[in-house]
């Protein structure tokens, strides 16, 4: 029982990071109808920025600063490479973001250098006693930051003018334009928000272990999460991210014992198995909007 609980908590911790990344993908998808493969590079860039800033200003200030910095980078990407592509097939745009990912990572790697960079988080691998369980502090921090971030996002989309405008632009661009919404500005805002979110997620990916040049791969785990949740649903992304984290964690702990024939390290691909299962039942994910076909 104790093991099961610890496994769940670990899953929720990592799941929170995946969820944040998944939300960043979904925000971009809702505004531009594209999956941005540049998010891994932005996440890595965010983590590296935190690792440089944490020394002088401390971790708690470094994270928002890095988020702002990477948001600016996301904005720049949107302005220079995505804006000219409006109206072009989304797959062309997706491949463009992949090209950007390669290019950005090369530059970021220079700043990482040969060593593991520590993000300077205050938790490390410390544990705290929760009802007799030694729970790692960083998992609690990850869940907490997810709650804060998602709460803020929901409030933003629900109550602020810009949030409303973004939702309108995502629902129907032309109608939104007619109502006076600057769709271009909303798209730019979405890319900036996604960049900032990726940076925050990056900082927490690095918590407890640091970042090195291969850390970017972690961001790809958000891909099954967004499909499981439904591409255009933020709550879906959160649920999907947490599910991926938990499934992965349980496979890591128990698959070797109960399903050894699946091979070593099956946990890595378990999110994709979950993905297949979910899609066989619900082709648009758990919370995705069914595409309406007009004939």
């Amino acid at each position: 029982m104790r093991d099961v609980l610890l496994t769940t908590i670990r899953g929720l911790g990592f799941g929170s990071v995946y969820a944040m990344l998944a939300v960043s993908f979904v925000i971009i998808y809702k505004s531009s109808k594209v999956i941005s493969f540049a998010q891994p590079a932005l996440m890595l860039a965010g983590a590296v920025l935190v690792s440089y800033l944490a020394g002088p200003v401390g971790f708690y200030l470094a994270v928002p600063l890095a988020a702002i910095g990477i948001a600016a980078l996301g904005l720049g990407l949107e302005r220079t490479t995505i804006r000219p592509m409006i109206g072009r097939p989304v797959f062309v745009v997706a491949i463009i973001t992949l090209g950007l990912d390669i290019a950005i990572r090369v530059v970021v790697n220079v700043f990482i250098g040969p060593d593991v960079r520590n993000v300077g988080d205050p938790w490390g691998l410390n544990t705290v006693d929760v009802a007799g369980l030694p729970v790692q502090e960083r998992y609690i921090a990850m869940v907490a930051v997810l709650v804060v971030v998602v709460g803020a996002l929901f409030a933003f989309f629900r109550y602020s003018r810009y949030g409303l405008a973004m939702r309108a632009a995502s629902l129907d661009q032309e109608t939104a334009m007619v109502q006076g919404v600057s769709v271009g500005a909303m798209t730019a805002l979405a890319w900036a928000m996604a960049g900032g979110l990726a940076a925050v997620a990056g900082a927490f990916v690095g918590a407890g272990g640091g970042v090195d040049q291969s850390t970017w791969i972690i961001a790809l785990k958000a891909l099954p999460a967004i499909i499981i949740g439904g591409l255009d649903s933020i709550e879906g992304a959160v649920v999907g991210g947490l599910l991926v984290g938990i499934v992965e964690s349980f496979f890591a702990s128990y698959q070797g014992e109960y399903l050894p024939w699946l091979g070593q390290n099956f946990s890595l691909v378990s999110p994709y198995v979950l993905l297949l299962v979910v899609l066989l039942v619900k082709p648009y994910g758990l919370f995705g909007t069914r595409e309406v076909e007009r004939v």
Partner: peptide, 8 residues
């Protein structure tokens, strides 16, 4: 279809 198929 579309991106769902791509990710699968």
């Amino acid at each position: 279809r579309g991106l769902y198929l791509a990710i699968v």
